[in-house]
């Protein structure tokens, strides 16, 4: 999707830190995402891709919306971890929005066009899973999962 170097901004919306630490891990010597041209930036205004972790808590939601709208177009979101992808174990809690789907519904209600999202499930995902998503972005790796339905005859 993006051929050039990807600049990423890390947006924690109330995650437990598990995914966040794995994101840092991706940038340390063993996994070294910088060899794929990935650079962590300090402001959403510089970012191509927002790495979103956490179930989007009520307290962090407004700030997350601000950060996402601040990123320049075209922008992408990579939802990392079970919390971001589907709300995780607290998907139905009163204090969380409950994952990216519910969050996008709120964005649409507010008239904000939600950016395209890539899902990276895992609790937390292995650093290689995050690298896989970034490589998929650059066309270096292919998707390995698809919906499977079994119907009893």
């Amino acid at each position: 999707m993006i051929k050039k170097s990807i600049w990423i901004y890390h947006l924690n919306t109330g995650g437990c830190n598990g995914c966040d630490i794995e994101i840092i891990d991706v940038l340390t010597p063993f996994h070294d995402a910088e060899r794929l041209g990935v650079k962590l930036v300090g402001s959403p205004r510089h970012a191509d891709v927002i790495l979103l972790t956490g179930p989007i808590t009520r307290q962090s939601m407004e700030k997350a919306i601000n950060a996402i709208t601040a990123a320049p177009d075209p922008k992408f979101i990579v939802a990392i971890g079970s919390c971001a992808c589907g709300g995780g174990i607290w998907y139905d809690s009163y204090a969380t929005v409950g994952g990216i789907e519910a969050f996008y519904k709120i964005l649409r209600e507010r008239g904000v066009k939600p950016p395209k999202v890539i899902y990276v499930p895992g609790c937390p995902p292995r650093p290689e899973a995050i690298l896989h998503a970034l490589a998929y972005f650059k066309g270096l790796a292919s998707k390995k999962i698809k919906k499977r339905v079994f119907v009893e005859k």
Binding site: I118, G122, A129, Y136, I145, K147
Partner: peptide, 12 residues
């Protein structure tokens, strides 16, 4: 399997 990158949540 752990490389579960997907474009759509229905794929998951």
């Amino acid at each position: 399997e752990f490389e579960l990158t997907a474009d759509d949540h229905e794929e998951l």
